[in-house]
Design a protein around this nucleic acid. Structure first.
Lengths: 137, 137
DNA sequence: GTATCTGCAAAACATTTGCAATTCT
DNA sequence: AGAATTGCAAATGTTTTGCAGATAC
């Protein structure tokens, strides 16, 4: 078990999640790749390393990690959910041409709000759709 | 044909969409109800008035209206798309307890941006999840 | 040994698609 | 008649569910 696995394990334990091998590997993937993957992408990328891994476990794990506030769930796409382990406030930009999803380090007071119009905020999402700087020419 | 239908018709024509009865009624529903409905909700609510209306037509129409920039598509829910005819910049608040979706009249310079980090912005979305003021007690 | 985690297959849904029927001018 | 619109039924694709088997402590 290398350093990364150990760190991931501690993160899970702190949040009250039992650090099974599958859970560690899925969360580690999110931390290392930072690619806002779907369930399918995760399955495609790590099922080689963990031959017994099933998609059901990925679904279960991501749901659990989301409920424990360890990762974010991105519903920018109409048809599939993406996940993100970056928990600091940031925005996203979706290019409708190349389909890439960019992180934007936006400093926005609205993203850090804990209360809006009397409602208690748990999570905030800011995202844009458009044509990215590499596609617009 | 009442005043509303006439107004809706003109809006559609201005955007280059032929104002069929179905299209008028679907867009009018969105304007009048302002309830961020799903395809199913629209179908449930207006298929009584228009007995021949099919869900396929609602799907077709909403897609067309979205592409013509007449309505917005909201992907806040994981599993289904909602639609909104309010085109002025505003945010949304989703209550995880009562499940209601609120409009928030947020004045946010980020929502009006046409360019971010060199990318050309076409649409902006800001939304929150949490517990609404009526559920939190 | 008991509780939790995992995996398979089937089910459940929302959405899309192909194509035929209808409507409008 | 010709072109666009609509509707049905089937297909698609993602996510959930039920339950059985495996694993961990």
């Amino acid at each position: 078990m290398d350093m990364n696995d150990q760190e991931i394990k501690i993160i899970l334990q702190k949040k009250g999640v039992k650090p099974s091998l599958h859970r560690i590997k899925i969360l580690e993937y999110l931390y290392v790749k930072k690619n806002h993957p779907t369930v399918d992408i995760i399955y495609r990328d790590i099922s080689g390393d963990i031959p017994t891994l099933s998609k059901t476990t990925i679904y279960n794990t991501l749901k659990l990690l989301y409920e424990k506030n360890i990762i974010r769930m991105l519903t920018i796409e109409e048809n599939e959910v993406k996940y993100d382990a970056t928990m600091t406030n940031h925005a996203h930009f979706k290019c409708i041409s190349c389909r890439k999803l960019y992180d934007l380090p936006v400093r926005n007071r609205h993203l850090g709000a804990t209360e809006i119009d009397g409602h208690s905020v748990i999570e905030s999402h800011l995202y844009y759709r458009g044509t990215c700087k590499f596609c617009k020419n």
